[in-house]
Design a protein around this nucleic acid. Sequence first.
RNA 1: UGGGGCGUCGCCAAGCGGUAAGGCACCGGGUUUUGAUCCCGGCAUACGCAGGUUCGAAUCCUGCCGCCCCAGCCA
Length: 549
Amino acid sequence: MAEDLRDFIRRRIRDDLRTGDGEGVVTRFPPEPNGYLHIGHAKSICLNFGVAEEFDGSTYLRYDDTNPLRESQEYVDAIQRDIAWLGFSWAGPTYASDYFERLCEFAVELIKRGKAFVCSLPAEEIRATRGTLTEPGTDSPYRDRTVDENLDLFHRMRAGEFPDGSHVLRAKIDMASPNINMRDPVLYRIRHATHHRTGDDWCIYPMYDFTHCICDALEGVSHSLCTLEFEDHRPLYDWVLDNIAINYHPPQIEFSRLNLEFTVMSKRLFSTLVDDGHVTGWDDPRMPTLAGMRRRGYPPAAIREFCHRIGVTKSDGAVEYALLEFCVRQELEATAPRAMAVLDPLRVVLTNYDREGESLTAPWHPQQPEQGHREMTFSSTLYIERDDFMESPPRKYRRLTPGGMVRLRYGYIIVCEEVVKGSAGEIEELRCRYVPESKSGSDTSGLKPKGVIHWVDANTAVSAEVRLFERLFEDPNPGAGNFLEALNPASLSLADARVEPALFAREASDAVHVQFERTGYFVKDSLDFTPERPVFNRTVALRDSYKPQ
RNA sequence: UGGGGCGUCGCCAAGCGGUAAGGCACCGGGUUUUGAUCCCGGCAUACGCAGGUUCGAAUCCUGCCGCCCCAGCCA
């Protein structure tokens, strides 16, 4: 039972259950299989599946596959993969196309009741006679065809006697309605197209408004939850169910869709990004698709937490990206083992280290000893992060400087004695002295360096490609204008990193994510990672409160 | 200018006539061998605006203003 009535929909359902007639909660998630699911869908998924779970109900995954021109099996499969990944299980799946025969029977019923007619106006004429926002439309000249004539025409439409666009079935409602959706909306259109499930069985396909409400009723959906833009369609949803012999009538309840700053939430726009090569695919780690976020390394639990935190209301707005990143970090902080990786290597030679090398011990997670520890090799040649050294540091810089000292995490304290530069003046390497008695864990030096930096042993470090991502768009609302112009040219950058080898010995580990200390959380790229060429995606950087002053 | 919605802190969001929850962000401070984590503290005399009802209004009424959605044989 629901313990947490945190939004108006859950309270509404609770009330409906109390007042009696409900036999339980049944919801549905009804995607059209014409693209990949995105974070906006995640909100709807979490709502529909979450509500059902909380009220001991169930949720149908129902594909809204009424437009064979745009839909395909590829998307059907991808959608199931994404929902399962998010952690939900569904009843079904079912398909609107499962109900094509019954839908057709209901259409015939409408015709027999004089509530629908075959209109033979071309599409442009229908548009022209629909009226405008402020002017009523005008009746179709075919509006008064007899029932028999309509029946005959509709049967012949179904039989394939007419070409696409020659006739449609329309509801007979009111061309003067202030709600444009009620101005004799089209119910069926002719489309000689192969459907991904029904093949060539049909050449007429029902429209959303006719299909959706009937499928909801047929499946016994107790609460049909959808986004705000369908609010104007509710009268039509109700009209259809009120005018056919069906014994069940679900309520449609609308909530506001999710908008996320610095991204778009439209399958059409995604297609453009993919087709024009601005991203590598629907699963590009910069994409707000679930497939993209999965590849980026966002844990499903983080996405669920995000959807929980944003709430469900009817007011539209745009959620800041920072909240999503917070959820991702929170999830990863608790679980990800730590490792050392230098993204932009600067060589450090320890002039007074005359041993061959040694092994240092470091925990996989500083707050979780149960994760165990690993060994790190240490020698006279190391790499540190290039920006962990500055010749002219600002005030309060806590890393390495000429003559300055710093702690190598889990290793020794080093002091920079010389900066070696190339002919162009670029820093090629640092020559440093290490403090032998400062070994981590048995430090007797008494020295207190103000900074700690990460490092790897140049002799054993593994070279790896690291992919760093920034926001895909520079405009907080890229959908407002030409969204391609808002693309961030620097959304992807590659680094040739050096990673400590113990990470790869951990192959058998079930840890999917890793924190490279001080630089962020990373995952192996699911497509491109090979033992020969490791590739890591940065899921999200660590929070950084450093402000140069 | 028709219809349908929405307006509470920078963002999300509680509140449903009794005197503004919470989270994110941000700003301080503490702990820290990740400038991370963690911990403390700060952060709306104010609820789009203007009237009205009331002992009392973010919550009720009236009128404005602003934003979003709708004129696909898309969903």
